[in-house]
């Protein structure tokens, strides 16, 4: 049998393998994005950028609570102007490696999303990820746009009007019907859907002091504990839309990546696993995925995609 083909096409862009660095993990500099690409990622996502610089929340911002991570970094970012410089540098470093760049953005208003999208498009990333699902800025920004189908659709439409690049909309699991949100953003021109952002928010209390440990008190829950929820969300979304899905949430191994693909994902995001297995996790999961395909006789990723939907 010939070697399995791990490459996938996401909105017409080729990824050498389906593993994508999820936003918010190591995406703060061009050098780190290049490093993750060299570690074997099929694509990399920069940390979400907003219109103006933000320092984010004070520490503690990220904790290992025993079965996953909980974080409230608070969308720290250098602002769109500086981000364009970082993205240009990143693009130049990634081009020779053949690894596409996803530029993640957020804003406080619908109009703001369009403006940030237009700005970061100057750096010519391969995709724009529209982060409407950060659970850690509710006190400042109000309810995430991903919580309501009309809000999610309005943001998608604003970004669609602003740029011609492929748009990935990142959805929240913290809704009663994620498929309805997915349908709404697809209808307004989303080219792909990323699911899921972190779960919750959750809280961890220090029992000696009686205080929540995160400075923000609450934070988004990620890591292996949320994987079954992420898999179910991707399964639901893939029944509802035709656009490709980047499945994210607790992927730790090649077996987990296969599970996400069988739920209907075209590509698979990796985030918290960087904590558990280091940046080397990308090559490790890629080889585990390859091994699984060899063992089970799959020639390419599409042969596994959506298998869970069969009778």
């Amino acid at each position: 049998m010939t070697a399995p083909d791990l490459s996938v096409s996401l909105c017409g862009v080729r990824l050498a393998n389906p593993l994508v660095l999820a936003s918010g993990i190591l995406g703060t500099s061009a050098e780190l994005l290049e490093r993750v690409a060299r570690c074997g990622a099929g694509a990399v996502t920069s940390k979400s950028c907003g219109p103006t610089p933000r320092t984010g929340h004070p520490n503690p911002t990220v904790l290992d609570w025993g079965h996953g991570l909980i974080n409230a970094v608070g969308l720290s970012n250098p602002g769109a102007d500086e981000e364009v410089r970082i993205l240009r540098d990143a693009k130049a470093r990634l081009a020779p490696l053949g690894v596409p760049l996803v530029a993640s953005i957020f804003a406080e208003t619908v109009q703001g999303f369009g403006e940030v999208a237009r700005k970061v498009a100057e750096a010519a990333p391969d995709f724009i990820e529209v982060n409407i699902s950060c659970p850690n800025v509710e006190a400042e920004f109000g309810r995430p746009f991903a919580a309501d189908a009309r809000d999610a659709a309005a943001v998608t439409a604003a970004v669609r009007r602003a740029v011609s690049l492929p748009i990935i909309v990142k959805l929240s699991p913290n809704v009663p019907d994620i498929a309805a949100i997915a349908r709404a953003v697809e209808a307004e021109g989303a080219d792909a859907i990323a699911a899921i952002n972190t779960l919750g928010p959750g809280m961890v209390i220090d029992t000696d002091s009686g205080k929540p440990i995160l400075a923000n008190r609450t934070g988004g829950v990620s890591g292996p504990a949320i994987r079954p929820i992420a898999v179910r969300c991707v399964y639901d979304v893939s029944r509802a839309v035709r656009v490709p899905i980047i499945g994210i949430g607790g992927i730790m191994s090649g077996r987990d990546a296969v599970e996400m693909i069988m739920a209907g994902a075209t590509a698979v995001g990796i985030g918290s696993a960087v904590y558990y297995r280091g940046p080397e996790v990308f090559a490790a999961v890629r080889e585990e995925l390859r091994g699984f395909m060899e063992t089970h006789g799959y020639a390419d990723i599409s042969q596994m995609r959506g298998l869970a939907h069969g009778a």
């Binding site: 190591l26 703060t28 500099s29 050098e31 780190l32 490093r35 984010g56 991570l69 970094v73």
Partner: peptide, 18 residues
């Protein structure tokens, strides 16, 4: 300057080194 201390947030990046 560090935020997570765990090698995920990227705050302490030094030219690609964490």
């Amino acid at each position: 300057m560090m935020k997570c201390g765990l090698g995920v947030c990227g705050s302490c990046d030094h030219h690609g080194l964490l």
